[in-house]
Write a protein that binds this DNA or RNA. Structure first.
Lengths: 156, 156
DNA sequence: TGGCTGAGTTTCGATCGGCAACCCTGCGGT
DNA sequence: ACCGCAGGGTTGCCGATCGAAACTCAGCCA
């Protein structure tokens, strides 16, 4: 009936322990989008300062963000936040979440869509196997346990 | 410096208002994987009963899960939970999260990997535009605002 | 009648998020 | 030298949420 493994060694569970609350992913999205400073984040997200402060610390501690010093002329040195490579690799999660939200939570046309710079086409995430086959999710997407038998469903 | 839209009309923000805490996505993952009953979920996730109860209600209310009656011989009729089409469409989010967790949070080989049933190859999510071009995320992935100018970064 | 089981609900202490007030550090102006 | 200011937090308080455990409820069986 599916692959069920210990929940605490599940990658999804681990990822959610860090990212699974209301602000972390929105912070990552904003930072990746050029909203990098504390006050900008606070204004844009409407999150409380202490919470933002906590989240930023955890994200830095987890290696998703890093503090980079900057100085604007006439001001002292301050820090802003930038994505690390590991943080940048969250883009599929954000893209998938955005696509899902657009389809199921938003009435009317999506407020913003990913596009292929240069050709302008809409971008979607397609599951492809290492041999180049496009996988039809509902029928052909399975799970392998460690290096064990295939199965249908989705877990980890 | 990126596309920045009102946070409250952002699909990611809306999706996270529903899914953005520790349990919702894990419940969806487990249900999609055949763990469908209250006690099974509680055992597998280690979540408190009242919280599980709340989450299940919200997910049902949001149309991600539905209660389906069943009866085991010698027991009264009970309900289990099944994914609706909208819940099933969260698979890219879960897949992306799993892939990210595997790369950045787990030491050693991934506990479980998505595979192409029938050829056995590992599956990954590839961004492809509607004209069939494979998009290189760091350089060619942009955002279009409503139906407006392209841009780099990732938001919504 | 009484016990058992799955599926919750209630209760209560601990933790978390929101808000507002406060602090700390340099800079520029006087 | 002193003052004010602004970004970037920290602290305190309070109400909401979480976790654990006890309690409830409904039907099946003996």
């Amino acid at each position: 009936m599916g692959v069920v493994i210990d929940n605490d060694r599940c990658s999804i569970a681990r990822a959610l322990a860090l990212l699974g609350e209301r602000w972390s992913l929105q912070i990552v999205r904003d930072v990746s989008n050029g909203v990098r400073r504390f006050e900008e984040l606070r204004d844009h997200l409407g999150v409380a300062r202490n919470v933002l402060s906590n989240r930023l610390s955890s994200l830095v501690a987890a290696g998703l963000l890093e503090r980079v010093p900057y100085r604007e002329s006439g001001s002292r040195q301050r820090f802003e936040y930038a994505l690390t490579p590991s943080g940048r690799e969250l883009w599929p999660v954000l893209t998938a979440l955005m696509a899902w939200g657009d389809r199921h939570l938003v009435d009317g046309p999506p407020p913003v869509e990913p596009e292929h710079v240069g050709c302008g086409g809409k971008v979607s995430l397609v599951p492809v196997c290492e041999h180049g086959h496009v996988v039809e999710p509902s029928r052909e997407l399975g799970l392998r346990l460690g290096s064990a038998p295939p199965w249908s469903g989705l877990s980890s």
